[in-house]
Amino acid sequence: KVAPDGHHLTVELAALLPSAACSRRSAKVTGVKKEDSSPSLEVVHRHGPCAGASKAPSEAEIFVRDQARVDLIHSKFSEESGSGSVQRIRPSKATKIPAKSGATIGSGNYIVSVGLGTPKKELSLIFDTGSDLTWTQCEPCARYCYSQKDPVFAPSKSTSYSNISCSSPSCSQLESGTGNEPGCSSATKSCIYGIQYGDQSFSVGYFAKETLSLSSYDVIENFLFGCGQNNRGLFGSAAGLLGLGQDKISIVKQTAQKYGQIFSYCLPKTASSTGYLTFGGGGNGGALKYTPITKAHGVANFYGLDVVGIKVGGTQLPISSSVFSTSGAIIDSGTVITRLPPAAYDALKSAFQKGMTAYPKAPELSILDTCYDLSKYTSVDVPKVSFLFKGGTELDLDAIGILYGASPEQVCLAFAGNQDPRS
């Protein structure tokens, strides 16, 4: 809750720490909707009890993966040497990211369940605003399929499945959304997609169309997706990815007429609770504060935002506006820890530490360098952190968004600094 001074949050420590039990939302879940409302999918954390995950990775593993994803995103925005312009680079072409052991990129941490085919088969897909192509593993897994929770989708058992031909205009759409030119099967003249992520994870298969069911009322016919025949990487037990980027092959663009290019989500507050992903407008429970989507410094498929300031404890930090405009910013459902330009992070860290002097420090946790030992407390007062966006939008973070609790002995400020102010 907000402390009486309005500038601090009082948080019960237990709310910051992982729980072994799944706490499900009672409404707005898959299949529970009125005919005239927007389709809403339940969102669960990939490694939490609501996803039936048996073993969650350690914080160190999570942050190594998170850094690998951030490194890939940075590389996409890397500047051409000398020209000062920004080159659009897709991961499979010019970008060379060192493969890190155990690192995965391209897969986020939140999962939704959708129905594919006729009759429909339920598939758990990682939802990702940072990529565009939706794909799932498909039988007969001609080359390779990794182990997944749901049965692998079988096109031969669906009456609505068909491959896209090489000569179809849809086939030529693939390059902008995957970074790879499509291939063509010599035998069947079917369009072949390939998508590769920065850690060398990939999916290759038939580009196809199929009926996608978001709920029993919301059925998308002729949805273009990747039917993967060779899939390798650390995608966990998910059946594939749901691409929510801005390219024309993303689900957002493919359903533009039906849902008006609007979607929204509430991410689960913890790995043991659930949220939702909704397509279409309307039904917003509260007033919304908007900020423009920017072009993200030329990499159009990402959702760019303009951060203009940060407040800690109600006071705006003395950060030059050029600090934010030099780097730009994106919002990405697949990144765990928000990265800030070095000068902005230093200012945030300094102000936050001043507001936390009552609590003993703890060792750093991987990329998180400002940690506290809160084991002697049941509730703590933390300075309120707010982000200011272009257009006058001020966003107050709640405690879950400010602190990352690994254990009562190690609760950390949930931000990290970039090394390069241009990143």
Partner: peptide, 30 residues
């Protein structure tokens, strides 16, 4: 004192209005 809501359990709704070129944040939408 009546506790009618718990701020800690509220989540932030994020709305992507791609056609309108804007992202919205809402406190009471979840």
């Amino acid at each position: 004192v009546a506790i009618i809501g718990n701020v800690q359990q509220k989540s932030l709704q994020v709305v992507y209005d791609v056609g309108g070129g804007r992202v919205g944040f809402g406190y009471n939408g979840c």
